[in-house]
Design a protein around this nucleic acid. Structure first.
Length: 492
RNA sequence: CGGGGUGUGGCGCAGUUGGCUAGCGCAUCUGCUUUGGGAGCAGAGGGUCGAAGGUUCGAGUCCUUUUACCCCGACCA
């Protein structure tokens, strides 16, 4: 096991990469742009899946599964959608291999060319809407509320663990509604769930808002987003929810008979979060000692490290730890006793810190004598010795306090880097220092593009629940009139 | 696709104007001592130096070709 990760302050991206590797979350695969998610990383992802899935189901959403392959013709029905994804699609052209006639291994059989190429889904709107067409005839069939957990492929030029990989895991929800109002409400409801999940489970303060037309999903009329600030002050889009209007219904001819007996196109939404959330977790909370997991997401909430000199001592400590673990089971706290005999305590301390386990209990001869245990918390790296008797009752409160503290810390960090800005000169300078700048914008794509070209900054969102600032002013760049401030930042 | 960089045991690297048996740290294995913050000592194993061709008495080192990966742009959750 290597020593500590690269210092966060020295090289942020290297720190990030180091952390993902050394905390045993994931590694680069030999396959171009692809990632292997290791068991520990996957355990965290599974927990995210489980919690989100529960939240979806409470709103009536059901899980389903649609094919990985999309016939090329489906894909090209919605013009804007194609334009948005065409440049990053993997395409299946053949269905058979053969031995190389010249004996150089295996080659693609030229006779096995597909009549119609299949696109490996970069997102499933098209295949799903071609299916929904068969499901929907009457207003009684609506709404349809489906979600799928799956992988998608986007052939990115440059990739980074979790943040941007050629293949990634996500959930995508696709709903069909009888009215525009209902669809809009659903899109808002789902982004609300994402915000709730980010804030209360991931301890990630996010800004909820609308995307500007430039940043909108290809084919959407409105895109809602949650935007988080990473510890380098850059923005990360952590989840999106789209109001698709009738675009896909029209492209795939999905109509229903309404209560008045008239044919109408259905209204659609889609929404998703991906394994990118894992990247957000690392970048928002991690420190120089490694990952910091919010207790509600930690696969292991409490790790116990025995300290001993003899076999007898070892058995005695482990027996006490078994007792503690029984209490923790009753309290639904997940735990692990690290009884590996080949590693020394100091090593284990460092390793579990690297992995971000919220609470560590250490117990040795000293504690056996005095009936105590050492309790260390990951978020503050502080330790205290406390009597064994009331330990179990103390743990849930401690986990809550860690959860809250991680959120508060991230929020305070963001607050310290969000500011209003009304001068273009100041903007150009400040935006490069990792800040969210609240500025006036004239509402035109041209202005946003010009700002992006000059500074790389984009409108992260037009906020709806924090930093809302409806006031008259002048565009930071063009000087034209504006009615509200929007959030500008450089993003991942 | 444009600009820059790197390929040497599992990982990270050194290798001088071409020279003798290719080296170091980490990791691995064995033994003993250790164990309350990433252990110490002793020993051992592991390499066709990215690939192909060339120059030379002699190439990790020079030349040509090629390939892979990384970083900075364009594209993006």
């Amino acid at each position: 096991m290597a020593k500590a990760v690269t210092k966060r302050s020295e090289n942020y991206s290297q720190w990030y990469n180091d952390l993902a590797l050394k905390a045993d979350l994931a590694e680069q695969s030999a396959v171009r742009g692809c990632m292997v998610i290791k068991p520990y990383g996957y355990a965290i992802w599974e927990k995210m899946q489980h919690l989100l899935d529960g939240m979806f189901k409470q709103t009536g959403v059901q899980n389903a599964y649609f094919p990985l392959f999309i016939p090329k013709s489906f894909f090209s029905r919605e013009a804007e959608h194609v334009a948005g994804f065409a440049k990053e699609c993997a395409v299946v052209t053949h269905h058979r291999l053969m031995n190389d006639p010249e004996g150089k291994g295996v080659v693609v059989d030229p006779d096995a060319r597909l009549e119609e190429e299949l696109i490996v889904r970069p997102t499933s709107e098209t295949i799903i809407w071609s299916t929904y067409k068969n499901w929907i005839t009457s207003w009684r069939d609506l709404p349809i509320l489906c979600n799928q957990w799956c992988n998608v492929v986007r052939w990115e030029m440059r990739t980074r663990l979790f943040l941007r990989t050629a293949e990634f895991l996500w959930q995508e929800g696709h709903t069909a509604h009888a009215t525009a109002e209902e669809a809009r409400a659903r899109a808002e409801q789902m982004v609300g769930i994402y915000a709730d999940f980010a804030r209360n489970v991931m301890a990630l303060p996010v800004i909820m808002g609308h995307k500007s037309p430039n940043e909108r999903f290809a084919g959407a009329l409105d895109t809602l987003t949650i935007e988080a600030m990473m510890q380098d002050g850059k923005a990360l889009q952590a989840g999106t929810s789209h109001f698709l209007g009738q675009n896909f219904a029209k492209s795939f001819d999905v109509q229903f008979t309404n209560k008045e007996g008239k044919q109408e196109y259905v209204w659609a939404t889609s929404w998703g979060v991906s394994t990118r959330l894992m990247g957000a977790l690392i970048m928002a909370h991690g420190d120089d000692n490694g990952l910091v997991l919010p207790p509600r997401l930690a696969p292991i909430q409490v790790v116990m490290v025995p300290i001993y000199k003899s076999e007898d001592e070892r058995n005695e400590v482990l027996a006490k730890m078994k007792e503690i673990s029984a209490d923790l089971d009753r309290l639904a706290v997940s735990w692990k006793i690290d009884d590996r005999d080949t590693l020394r305590p100091g090593f284990k301390f460092a390793e579990w810190e690297l992995k971000g386990v919220p609470v560590r209990l250490a117990m040795g001869a000293r504690d056996l004598e005095s009936g105590t245990v050492e309790v260390a918390r990951r978020d503050t790296l502080t330790k205290e010795t406390m009597p064994l008797e009331h330990l179990a009752d103390h743990i849930p409160a401690l986990l809550d306090s860690i959860q809250q503290n991680i959120y508060d810390k991230a929020l305070a960090f963001r607050e310290s880097r969000v500011e209003k800005c009304d001068s273009w000169e100041e903007f150009k300078e400040k935006i490069q220092t990792g800040r969210f700048l609240l500025c006036h914008w004239d509402g035109t794509p041209e202005t946003e593009q010009a700002i992006k070209d000059e500074t790389k900054a984009t409108i992260r969102c037009i906020p709806v629940d924090s930093y809302v600032c409806e006031e008259e002013g002048r565009d930071i760049y063009s000087g034209k009139p504006s009615h509200r401030r929007v959030v500008f930042a450089i993003s991942y």
